[in-house]
Write a protein that binds this DNA or RNA. Sequence first.
RNA 1: GGCGCAUUCGUCUAGGGGUUUAGGACACCUCCCUCUCAAGGAGGAGAUCACCGGUUCGAAUCCGGUAUGCGCUACCA
Length: 478
Amino acid sequence: MTNSVRTRFAPSPTGYPHVGNIRTALFAWLFARHYEGSFIVRIEDTDVTRKVKGAVEAILDSLRWLGLDWDEGPYFQSERLEIYHKAAKRLVSQGDAYYCYCSPQRLKEMRAEQVKHKQPPGYDRHCRDLSQEERAQKEAEGVIPVVRFKTPLEGQTGFNDLIWGDVVFDNSTIDDFILLKSDGYPTYHLANVVDDHLMGITHVLRAEEWLSSTPRHLLLYQALGFKPPQFAHLPMLLGAGRAKLSKRHGAVSITEYREQGYLPEAMVNFLALLGWSRDDRTEVLSRQELIDNFSLERVSRTAAIFNRDKLNWMNGVYIRSLALEDFTQRALPFLNKGLPLEVERPLPMEYVRQIMPLIQERARTLAEVPELAQFLFVDELDYAPSLLIAKNMSQVSTVKALELAKQRLEQLEVFDAESLEAMLRPLAVELGLKTGQLFGTLRVAVTGQIAAPPLFQTMAVLGKERCLRRIEVALAKL
RNA sequence: GGCGCAUUCGUCUAGGGGUUUAGGACACCUCCCUCUCAAGGAGGAGAUCACCGGUUCGAAUCCGGUAUGCGCUACCA
């Protein structure tokens, strides 16, 4: 089917996958899936100097983690050099490109001069009209040339961006950009255009920063005789203060979010809402709902700031919506990693399953699970004795309450939440205490914390023995 | 410097000439629920829609200018 939509994600492996890039991938993927088209991954590894080891795997891993499955690829541009060479050569022989022998040194000086005279920096087209002889001489000198595009000096190049509408540029503002570098690698412009054509890409969804380069690409498509795809430039992603998203705004690499315990579902949902909206009220959308509803018409044109708070909230929503067993399985690696070393491994799964319902409602990220659950695993609780004494209580009344509670607890046969509640509520009355006072004291004794999951359930999962022992320890502290 | 683009509550956004006293969400505050926390429920505060001018009976919505921000202006992508 020749009309079917084909989009691509074409990252450059110069670092770990940035959330901004991944958001771009997400949109391209959603667009392809919405139209039941194909999503292609292409690695644009044409900058040898900036290539980072392991980046490709990290990028692919991230896509897999988020469930952004691809239908073709990954293709590697570094393996397609001949194709670009052929294209460049063809452009030269057609008269649409030329060899440039200018040294980096000369270019640098030229630019400095231009800036000094407040002129727009750009190549001065020194080699554009070199004669046969001049070229032969440079070749003889052993100068390895680059190939530059012979940009039309006049006229305009415009296009209709699916998101930004009509955009027009004067060709005179575009210089003779490089197509093929002297190391034999193509620049983005050449490789991208050639590959998008060869791979049958129908819609190019890419970051906004490419908007100004699009006329060059269009000019290239024209010179090459290729039909250009449709373009859709996505708004950028920024950090707090509208600054470029960077480390100081928290994680920028998607892999870090994974390590910090964010769910891929939440991440996808959250990222989708950065620059796109379904309507004026829907915040939580499943993967399928995202696919069903996605459209470029609803993509915004303004840069979005990555809002951690909202991500945290959304992640909590997704965590709470998980089936218990699912949550347990996902939390387990975090528990194993985050619980103190003294806690014996492997963790007792029967016990883990019992405590998970208490934790699931309270965790916003999986990384919070160990700290929320720690008191349920460790043998010794570390807390200030003063915490045991509740509001309007004294040491004496606290000791009395704890002792009586201990006594009654020892007699309790069935140690479940209902029985505990049935026993402890009247006990508060008996002691002349408010439930908050008694329960608060017990909570600290049993959990070492003033904030914890509901007391009766907590005590039930801890079990009679452990509770009694902890109360004894508390009494000893007083 | 040149070219391009953008500008609605702190943030993400809805809005596409009158139905808007500009709606929702996060965060924040209050109250309710309640053994604490979390979750949930009900409220509150928060945007003269960057500014100026124009078009129009009527503009956040259309047009122009200004300001600010961002992007591109590399043998980086």
